[in-house]
Design a protein around this nucleic acid. Structure first.
Length: 111
RNA sequence: CGAGCUAGCCGGGUUGCCGCAUGAAAUAUUUGAGGAAAGUCCGAGCAUCAACGGGCAAGAGUGCAAGCUAACUACUUGUGAAGGCGACUUCAAGGACAGUGCAACAGAAAAAUACCGCCCGAAUUUCGGGUAAGGAUGGAAAGGCGAGGUAAGAGCUCACCCGCAAAUUGGCGACAAGGCGCGAUGUAAACCCCACUCGAUGCAAGAUCGGGAGCAUUAUGCAGCCCACGCGCUCCCCACAUCGCUUGAGCGGUAUAGCGAUAUACCGCCUAGAUAGAUGGCAACCGAACACAGAACUCGGCUUACAGACUAACUCGUAAC
RNA sequence: GCGGGCGUAGUUUAGUGGUAAAACGAGAGCUUCCCAAGCUUUUGUUGUGAGUUCGAUUCUCAUCGCCCGCU
C-alpha cells in the first residue's frame, strides 16, 4: 500500500465511522464515505482481536489482500476496513476472498 | 543405563519474483524486531519545574558481613537459619529489660496470678497463711528429668541435658570456638525505637517556528515551616512541521588480575528509528522448523511466558569390570 | 508510553487478625382444593500462588483478570 493511499487523520477516521455506509462479510466490515482527497484506505484492528503479534499479522494480510485491487477500486471515497476477532488466524486465501467480496457487495469495484 | 542438580548457549538458514520503511543516491542498491522487545517491580542517564543551596518536620523505602558498580533495595563471594540421603536450593536475616498495644475460644491465670489439690494454724466445714510437685485448657503455662531437701513444696542444692551468655583466642568483618555467670512467653510483613537512603514530574518530558491575550514593576514562586536566593516575563490556542531520535556507562574477540560479580589493556565493528505506526505474499531446498511473543527516548537489574536442540561439571541408585 | 483503582453466595454490596453477613434470586420442604403471599432450609477453594503469624477476607510479595485517567 502506497503512503498516499493511507487514511491518516484521527478526524477522518471519526468522520467515516460516523457517516460511512456499512457493508459486511463474515469476518470483516467495510465503511466508506465521500472524500475530497481521492482514494484513501484505513485499517481498524482493535485489541479484542488479539495481542500485538496477532494484530500485526491481521493488518499485513489485509494490506496484501488490498494491493492487487488498488487499481480497480472506485476513486474519490475513503474506506475503513474493520477486522472482527474471528479474522485472527485465517489464512491469506480466505482474507483475500473476503476483501474482494466486501468491495463487490458495496459496488465499488469498477472492472 | 536410570533419576536428579547447577551453569552456559541456540531458539532458524539459503535462493528467486512482487511489496513496505529507511539511508545513500538517482533506480542498480544498504540496512531492517527479542531473549524476553512483555510486566512496569527497582536503579540511573536525559529534560523541565526561576533556584535543590542548607536546616527542621512529615512521608516513603531498606535492614547479616565484605566486595562490585555510573547507580541500586540489584549482583558476587561468604556468615547464620530452614529444607534435601546428596549434588544443591531457599530466606524483608537489626531491636521485645525505650515505651504502648494485642494474644479470640478454652483455662484459676496469657505476664503476672491461685480454681481444684497438697501442707500448717485457727475454727468446725468456713477463714488466714505457705506452695507450684499433681489436675484440667491452649499454638504458647514460669527450662526438662532424676536425686537430695521440706510441714507441704520450690534451681533452694547437686548430676546430666536445654537456652542465653562474660573473659580469652581466631577472622578485615558477619561470625566461630569457648564457657565465668544467668534462667519472665509470643508478636515489630502491630504502632514503634535505632541505623542508612530519598525534591517532584516524566520524551504525550521538553525545545524551536506560527497565531492571540495580559501585565508593566510587584505581583508571583518546586504542594509544610525557617534561612538564603532570583527577576522581561506570564497565560491561552493549534497537535501541523522540525528537533528530541539514536555512537552508547555500546557490541564482538584476545590477553592479564580476581574463587566470583567485575576491572584494565589492545584489536575490530556501526548494528531499526517509524509517527495510523515499517519484516509481508507466492514458491523451492535443508532431518524437522511448529514455542512464547512485535521496538516507540536510552541503558543496568528483577519478575513472568516459552516448542524444541546442544555443551560442560557434579550427585544418588543399579549392573558389569 | 505513563499513572491510578478493584476482585467476597447466581447478582448487588458489608465485614477492627479469632465460627464469613445482609438484600434480591434460584432449588427443596411446610401451608392451600390449586396459585400467590408467608414460614423453614440449602447454596462460598473470599481471583490464583507463596510468605509472616498459634490463627489471614484482613498484613506482605508475586501473578492473573477487569475498569478508569492522560492521548
Amino acid at each position: 500500500m502506497k503512503r498516499q493511499l493511507r487514511l491518516k487523520r484521527r478526524a477522518s477516521f471519526a468522520y467515516v465511522f460516523r457517516k460511512g455506509e456499512r457493508t459486511g462479510a463474515p469476518d470483516l466490515t467495510l465503511l466508506s464515505a465521500r472524500s475530497r482527497e481521492g482514494l484513501k484506505i484505513g485499517l481498524s484492528v482493535s485489541k479484542k482481536v488479539g495481542g500485538a503479534v496477532v494484530r500485526n499479522r491481521v493488518k499485513r494480510l489485509l494490506r496484501e489482500a488490498i494491493r492487487p485491487l488498488e487499481g480497480s477500486i472506485f476513486k474519490g471515497r475513503m474506506y475503513v476496513i474493520v477486522a472482527h476477532p474471528s479474522l485472527a488466524g485465517k489464512p491469506y486465501d480466505e482474507v483475500c476472498r473476503q476483501v474482494r467480496l466486501v468491495f463487490e457487495r458495496a459496488g465499488r469495484l469498477t472492472c
